Amino acid sequence: MKILVINAGSSSMKFTLYSMENEQILAKGLFERLGYDKPNMVYKRPDGYKFEAEIPVKNHVEALKKICEKLVDPEDGVLKSLSEITAIGHRVLHGGEKITAPVKIDDKAKEIIRECFPLGPLHNPANLAGIEACEEEMPGVPNVGVFDTQFHMTMPPEAYLYAIPYDFYKKYGIRKYGFHGTSHHYVTLATAKFLNQKVEDTTIITCHLGNGCSMAAVKNGKVIDTTMGLTPLEGLMMGTRCGDLDPAAVIRLVDLGHTTAEVDKILNKQSGLYGVGDINSGDMRDMLAAAEKGSERAELALKMFARRIVKYIGAYYVLLDGPQAISFTGGVGEFSVPMRKRIMDQLGSLGLKLDDGRNAECFGKAGVISTDDSSWKAIVMPTDEELMIARSVVDTLHLK
Results as ranks from 00 to 15, higher is better:
residue 37 D to S: 09
residue 46 P to I: 11
residue 106 D to G: 09
residue 271 S to I: 03
residue 51 F to Y: 14
residue 113 I to M: 12
residue 119 L to G: 00
residue 55 I to P: 00
residue 167 D to W: 13
residue 173 G to V: 03
residue 42 V to W: 00
residue 301 A to G: 07
residue 236 L to I: 02
residue 305 F to N: 04
residue 217 A to V: 10
residue 328 F to N: 07
residue 339 M to Q: 12
residue 348 G to I: 05
residue 91 R to G: 04
residue 264 D to I: 05
residue 132 E to S: 09
residue 107 D to N: 15
residue 101 A to G: 00
residue 179 F to A: 05
residue 77 G to T: 08
residue 42 V to H: 06
residue 7 N to S: 08
residue 283 D to K: 13
residue 54 E to F: 02
residue 168 F to D: 13
residue 217 A to G: 11
residue 358 R to K: 15
residue 45 R to I: 13
residue 17 L to S: 06
residue 166 Y to H: 14
residue 321 D to Y: 06
residue 350 L to V: 10
residue 311 K to M: 06
residue 225 D to R: 06
residue 96 G to M: 01
residue 66 K to A: 12
residue 26 L to E: 12
residue 315 A to Y: 06
residue 194 F to G: 04
residue 41 M to T: 00
residue 301 A to Y: 04
residue 284 M to A: 05
residue 197 Q to N: 11
residue 133 A to M: 12
residue 310 V to M: 07
residue 34 L to T: 03
residue 236 L to N: 03
residue 328 F to R: 07
residue 248 A to H: 09
residue 73 D to Y: 09
residue 337 V to P: 11
residue 212 G to C: 01
residue 334 E to P: 10
residue 112 I to T: 11
residue 248 A to P: 00
residue 24 Q to R: 15
residue 237 M to G: 00
residue 225 D to P: 10
residue 28 K to H: 14
residue 381 M to W: 08
residue 114 R to W: 01
residue 203 T to P: 10
residue 219 K to D: 09
residue 193 K to Y: 07
residue 393 V to K: 01
residue 125 P to R: 04
residue 58 K to W: 01
residue 293 K to Y: 06
residue 319 L to W: 04
residue 188 T to Q: 09
residue 216 A to D: 08
residue 138 M to Q: 09
residue 207 C to I: 05
residue 318 V to M: 13
residue 4 L to Y: 09
